[in-house]
Simulated scan of single mutants.
Amino acid sequence: MAEVIAIAPKTVPESLLNERTTPMDYAANCASSQQWHKPPLLSICIPAYHRPQGLAQAVRSVVAALPPESQNRVEIIITDDSATPAAVEDLLAGWSGRWYYQHNAQRLGMVANWNASVAKASGDFILLLHDDDYLLPQGIPTILEILTREGTAFDVFLFGVHLVDQHQRCLRRQIPRRQGWLSPAQALRQLLRHSSFVRFPALIWRRSLLEEVGYFDPAYGEATDLYQWLRFFARKGVYTVPRATAAYTIHDQALTMGMFHAQTLATLRQIFTAAADFKILSPAALRECQGDFFHQFILAGTWRFLRRRQWQRAQAVYQLFELPEVIALGRSRRWQGLRWLFGAWLWLLRQIS
């Protein structure tokens, strides 16, 4: 059983609000107020797990972004997989829109918690915000502006992000080059050539897409997000917006630090097989994309450990290039220079040690 606290705006009579209620009670409470007959434009879903400070920052970045008269356009949903419930009432004291908090008495796990969060969304569009990321001050106004203007024509939107460290220092910016729609073929080529083309808080999709393609599939493990974006892009393409709306945190505790191994590459091969089934890109184009993707993935993992002076772990990741399935893809012209540089660096470190 999950502990659920669901709060509607203060305009709802107090007699209809219980300290603890079920999701169905929550829907009824909201429906009792005239202003909630229309669903919000955007649901911001925050699947939390043992980061109380990060959760607080994520929630505050939403609450502080909108004046009270605009908060009914956004709802906040928190599903908490932590051992103990978070004190979210104080964080949301100034929020006049819908919000929903659920503490999972038994841990669901990463992907299941994502699905639990988005399943409770009632907005036209969904943004999944992890509890180690946060929205920039103009993030929500920018998103609402674009969704209001373009939301009737497009279903998937990709914004820019600031990549920050755990001290909120901006390391670099990742922002789409142009504003406009990428067809499914164009979107898949970008997604499957660049291992970090999509950062989680930068992507927003129409809620009804989950009914078309399904929820996040746990069978794809740490690459389940890539598989989900593949299914979205193959059907709808993506509308890119060259404006940063969120901060994406890179830190030592990130779950992605543990994904640079052979099993992940095997999962990625399954995703490329699924991409082939859509018959949108030619086999030659897919092979080129896969070669670039695998090279970038291995080099990115190698760099993360080199930067932290974890030489043996960096070497272990770099050796993924020796796997037969990676060798079969051939060299990536795009990444060949950096691969040579990292190889020389690691060779020199071995000689010194």
Rank of each mutant, 00 (worst) to 15 (best):
S195A: 14
F200G: 09
L203H: 01
I204M: 04
I204W: 00
W205T: 10
R206G: 02
R207M: 05
L210K: 02
E212F: 06
E212V: 07
P218Q: 06
P218H: 08
P218W: 03
Y220R: 01
E222I: 11
A223N: 10
T224L: 12
L226S: 07
L230V: 09
L230K: 03
R231C: 13
R231Y: 06
F233E: 00
R235N: 12
R243A: 10
A244Y: 01
A244V: 10
Y248W: 09
D252V: 15
Q253W: 14
M257K: 06
F260L: 01
F260R: 00
L265Y: 01
A266W: 07
L268P: 01
R269T: 14
I271L: 03
T273F: 08
D277R: 12
K279A: 15
L281H: 02
S282H: 05
A284Q: 13
R287L: 14
Q290M: 15
F293D: 04
F293W: 06
F294Y: 12
F294S: 02
Q296L: 13
Q296M: 11
Q296E: 15
L299M: 08
L299N: 01
A300F: 15
W303K: 12
F305N: 01
L306A: 04
R307N: 13
R307P: 00
W311F: 13
W311I: 15
R313S: 05
A314Y: 00
A314W: 01
Y318V: 01
Q319F: 09
